[in-house]
Design a protein around this nucleic acid. Sequence first.
DNA 1: GGCCGATGTTTCAACTATAAAATATCGAAG
DNA 2: CTTCGATATTTTATAGTTGAAACATCGGCC
Lengths: 174, 174
Amino acid sequence: MSIDSVLAFREKHDGELGDAALDPETREAVRLWLRLLSCTMVIEKRVRRGLAEQFQTTLPRFDILAALDRAENGLSMGALSRALLVSNGNITGLVQTLVRDGDVHLTNAPGDRRTAIVQLTPEGQARFRAMAATHHGWIAELLGGLTAADRAALLKQLGGLQASIAAAGTEFDQ
Amino acid sequence: MSIDSVLAFREKHDGELGDAALDPETREAVRLWLRLLSCTMVIEKRVRRGLAEQFQTTLPRFDILAALDRAENGLSMGALSRALLVSNGNITGLVQTLVRDGDVHLTNAPGDRRTAIVQLTPEGQARFRAMAATHHGWIAELLGGLTAADRAALLKQLGGLQASIAAAGTEFDQ
DNA sequence: GGCCGATGTTTCAACTATAAAATATCGAAG
DNA sequence: CTTCGATATTTTATAGTTGAAACATCGGCC
């Protein structure tokens, strides 16, 4: 199945929720959510496939390397977990495989024997930067059909969505 | 960790990719992709948590029920796989648990003994519709901070993104 | 010094997910 | 009819993912 046919299918069924009586505002919100999800999943699939085929690695491993490359002096397990929005236990397993492969190494945080600091090895950093360049190319390709103005507008609207989500989140907390 | 802090972290690091020399257009495209991913993941997490806590079910199972509720006369395994963008083998396992729980049943396609047709049972449909109503409420809540105009604009822009992805996809195919 | 709630990490069971190989059936060409 | 490429599904091996429980350590408080 091509990416085309996926989008065609999604588009065809987009919004046909079978909800007899549904407030139009809610209906539109759900429609928006389904489209957001569809876009994300298709791009994610493309990246996942590329990482597997060209670099024999996986997206979660790549994500960890990316987070570590951004951080100057490594990150703790907990910080990685929060940065990538995944559970603590998940990070433990992923970091173990990265240690095995020589991409990262673990040290103790000075003065706190609980926290383990994960850092890129030089080889890990080199491997990551090669992958990142290719990865950025895929993204540029997938998003290349939009004009720079389109991309800027979408970025801004998504910023508004983040704010909306955050506002809903604070309501839960109270 | 609250949803707030997730977004705060993502926002803080958004775009800081550590890529020394990177074409500004590509850099912006990657920034857009990260923000898209962040929004999707946070919403998905909220839905996943709600389904687990309030209905003791999971997002993939809900997705299958939703696809079947949309389709009038059931869907084949393959059609479900394509509709949900997941692998065939995955569908097999998920449908098995839904059959066990009495939400769906399987019949043979008339005239083709290869294809199995999955259909909602009356109980499955009733359970799904109750969940869907609550689900729509969560979405409306998370997206409620946007104006109707914002949502419409975002929907349209994401349509453009789908077109861009599809265009990139056809290039791969050739 | 010793308790003890809070914090950081790992372990565990259950579930999702994929690609590739295996199985079953179809349908048409000979 | 029967062979054979194509299609639909399941099986298998490997990896990700979660929440909750278990474990380890911290840091204040008495």
